[in-house]
Amino acid sequence: MLLSQLPANKISEYLSTQELCFKTGSINIAVKSNIPAIIKHITDFYSHYDCLEKSDFIDLHVEVYSVGGYRKFYKPQVTFSFDGYEPFIPLPLKQAPAMFEWGLNWCIANVAHQYLIIHSAIIEKDGYGLVMPGTPGSGKSTLCAALVNKGWRLLSDEMALLSLKDGLIYPAPRPVSLKNKSIQIIKEFAPNAVFGDVIADTLKGDIAHMVAPVSALKGQSVPVKPAFLVFPHYEDNIEKKLIKLSKARALMTLAEHAFNFNVLGEEGFDSMANMIEQVECYDFSYSDLTTALDGIETLIQ
């Protein structure tokens, strides 16, 4: 059953009184919150996700709630907890949806050690997995959002879950998080894409979430074999450049983007090296989205 098929008001009731449990690809989540903005965020962005029972295995139990005390009257804040632990300082209440998404990313990066977790967008087309690791501002989410609106399947815009067992990358599709100029760029590029409200003045600037396409949810149980590893770099006013990288250099760079490489040790290193063995590696600089997409599309041709 999908969350949208729950009887009216059940999403709100489960969220505020017990937990709302749902599946995001390989990660099962249970959420509790009485914040209206979180209830709206989940209704708007997760209504097509599969509902889970409390008896199902849950990877992450999280709670997003208002900070109490006098502060809630003059400067309301939100905080995020994971199994009772609060990893972040509270944020302004209006940033609750952003905190929820960041919090989930943090949880996955810190607990899902059955995977090597790469800070990367991961999408798929015709069976080819495209891994795009990147630091904030590199344009990975912008490219990812544009490509999933051109027929690529979204596995994640934020983290690639590389299985230590079979070397495949497992999906964990969630809303695509866009920042600042990228919001308008993707709204113009994909007028049919569904966006939430812009959350202004966060630590990362203005944030807007784009609903994950239906194709991402249909394929949420289907892992992908990585075929291309592309390190994107957005720069103003440059010619598009797609340069082949040596595998050794690609591995060195990839290690910088692996959240839990140090936790996994030798096993993580072997997983990365095995992935590098089977992918073509590129450094990709671009400034214009349309020509950038052409560059990416040529890879699988």
Partner: peptide
């Protein structure tokens, strides 16, 4: 350590420290 070779480059993983080196 562990070492992987690709053409004219290699990557070394120091098992104790977790450091990696390009050679």
């Amino acid at each position: 350590f562990k070492v992987y070779f690709w053409q004219d480059e290699s990557v070394i993983y120091n098992i104790k420290s977790g450091d990696i080196h390009l050679l």
